[in-house]
């Protein structure tokens, strides 16, 4: 446990140093990558149990909207508080849905989660008082009462994001390696055996789903603040799809790899958009394909092969 938190602290310090040295645009992209990475981390948790949600947009969007509305309409500006509120909102929404969703498996789990997120999209698109499809702007947050100027605001938010991400990754690592967490891996292998052994797959799924919802809400609140804008597209299926991709890219073996994967996806998309504005989708498609072909178990598999002992569970 001390080792995990020590590693997380070390990682956070390194990430903060890197952020302080990086150019401004990269700091912003890294913040956004952390937000997506957090959502993907939740999906990784589900993937360990053999499930993939194509509707994390719902919890991501719920977190972004609730914290964004509190900031824009009620003057709540404390970044850490807003992030926590986002996480609680996401977790609460997921808890509400989880008794229904935890019965499902495979592609039906994926599609039902997606349908639910599209219902939220439809509802928000209709909600004219909060901007309809155009959404609304979110003011800059403050940090412990301090409101930084534009020069340092990006970096300040990035530092907070890194701290939250490090804590989240460390907690996830501990949970994944704990007894209840490892049941998910067993369920991925064979659900019936898990049930015969006395564990409840339903409960495991529910727990992982609420955790994923909380992480998605956290990511949503973070992205809302970083972008200064939220809109119903946070809940659109393409958003959920992008995060699933990041999760697959990161692989389920490592809790840290998702953040790297998120950054790589953001950079690839941005630079292909810059240099091939007319055909960036083609390049993105080829990139995705190459990664799936050559790293089928994600970037995480590059260094986490020995770490978890659950080898070959994907096949």
């Amino acid at each position: 446990m001390i080792r995990v938190f020590g590693l997380a602290a070390l990682g956070a310090v390194l990430a903060i140093v890197a952020g302080a040295l990086a150019p401004a645009w990269l700091v912003f992209t890294m913040t956004k990558a952390i937000a997506f990475g957090l959502v993907a981390l939740g999906i990784v948790g589900l993937m360990r149990g053999g499930l993939v949600s194509f509707g994390q947009g719902l919890y991501y969007c719920a977190g972004a909207y609730v914290s964004g509305l509190l900031a824009a309409r009620f003057g709540v500006s404390e970044a850490a508080l807003l992030l926590l509120i986002g996480a609680v909102t996401g977790a609460a929404a997921a808890a509400l849905v989880s008794p229904l969703i935890a019965r499902y498996r495979g592609i039906f789990f994926a599609m039902l989660t997606m349908a639910l997120s599209m219902v939220l999209y439809g509802v928000l698109a209709k909600a004219t008082p909060i901007g309809g499809t155009d959404g609304f702007n979110v003011p800059r947050p403050s940090f412990g009462g301090w409101t930084p100027g534009p020069e340092s605001a990006d970096l300040a938010l990035y530092v907070v994001a890194v701290v939250f991400a490090a804590v989240a990754a460390a907690l996830c690592r501990l949970y994944y390696d704990s007894g209840p967490g490892l049941v998910a891996l067993a369920a991925r292998e064979n659900e019936l055996r898990v049930e015969y052994l006395g564990a409840s797959v339903f409960t495991v799924t529910q727990r992982n789903f609420i955790l994923a919802g909380g992480l998605a809400g956290l990511g949503g609140a973070l992205n809302g603040m970083a972008l200064g804008h939220v809109d119903p597209f946070f809940s659109y299926w393409t958003t959920s799809g992008e995060v699933v991709f990041i999760a697959i890219l990161g692989g389920y073996a490592s809790a840290v790899a998702v953040f790297g994967a998120a950054l790589i996806v953001e950079l690839v998309r941005s630079f292909s958009g810059q240099y091939f504005p007319e055909s960036w989708q083609l390049f993105l498609g080829i990139f995705l394909l190459l990664v799936i072909i050559f790293l089928p178990r994600g970037f995480g598999s590059l260094w986490a092969k020995r770490a978890t002992g659950a080898k070959g569970a994907g096949e």
């Binding site: 150019p23 401004a24 645009w25 990269l26 912003f28 992209t29 956004k32 959404g135 992205n223 972008l227 200064g228 804008h229 809109d231 597209f233 946070f234 659109y236 393409t238 958003t239 953001e266 998309r269 941005s270 958009g273 810059q274 504005p277 007319e278 960036w280």
Partner: peptide, 24 residues
């Protein structure tokens, strides 16, 4: 001129705007 595709929604566009200003 430096041309960028507007596809992808506001989230992507805020990021690309920053890239235009801060990177390009």
């Amino acid at each position: 001129p430096v041309v960028i595709d507007e596809a992808g929604g506001a989230t992507v566009q805020v990021q690309e705007y920053r890239n235009l200003v801060q990177r390009e």
